[in-house]
Amino acid sequence: MRGHEAKQVFPEIQLIQVPVVRVKADLNTCRNAGSEVVAVLSRKGRCERASIDEVYLDLTDAAEKNSGVDPKNMQNCRKDADHHDKLLACGTVIVAELRTQVLKETDFTCSAGIAHNKETAWRGKAARMLWHQHWCLVVEHCKRDHGEEVQGCLLPKSHGSEKTFPGPRALKTIASVQHWLNDLCEELAECLGSDLDQNKRIAQTLTLHARAYRSSDSDSQKNFSSKSCPLMYGTAKMQEDALNLFQTGLHEYLG
């Protein structure tokens, strides 16, 4: 729902204008705010940043060792609760403390899902989000022997820049695609430059994604394949490579 539509349904709604750069929402404020939250969360366990506002947190050790919350001595657990059930219970206590600490130090609220593996925890978090529209999401992982392990990674594993063109704003010429790819590559180059300066990191692969449909067949389910190539630093080179990737993808898409 767009702002003017929301205003019709809820006249009292307070709308704010987010910062805009290159006719796109500027997410740098959110990105930096996310780093503040991650800094607090990472005190309790291995932390893997999953997106701009999501992290996986492995609290296994904290749940096992947290002083005063020893799962072996929990008196209120059911008799058939096994060790892993008790770890989850300890996890809820730790997450509650973390959420309080995040709120106290950053003013942000978090939603959490707690489970023995990342996927289930993520689903739990998603269910909670239906009822609690919090800004930042925390997912906890209490056991390492089910599913993928939480990777210790406080920095993002990739950088991206995207733009949607809904309805009549859909692009239909190579020139318009090139214009937007140039903008997106500029933004991506800025992120890469910051990462290089601040963290001494470089990216090695450039990937282009596009959503497309044929004007004569708007119900087509055919996907525009993602295309990748080695990433060469330099905005102009990235812009050139992105356009080449697009044209390769378009060629395949059109068969």
Partner: peptide
Amino acid sequence: GWRITGLSVSASKIVEIP
């Protein structure tokens, strides 16, 4: 003809400079 309703570019396989 074709229509593009979304574009994204991303950079991955990020490593620290040795």
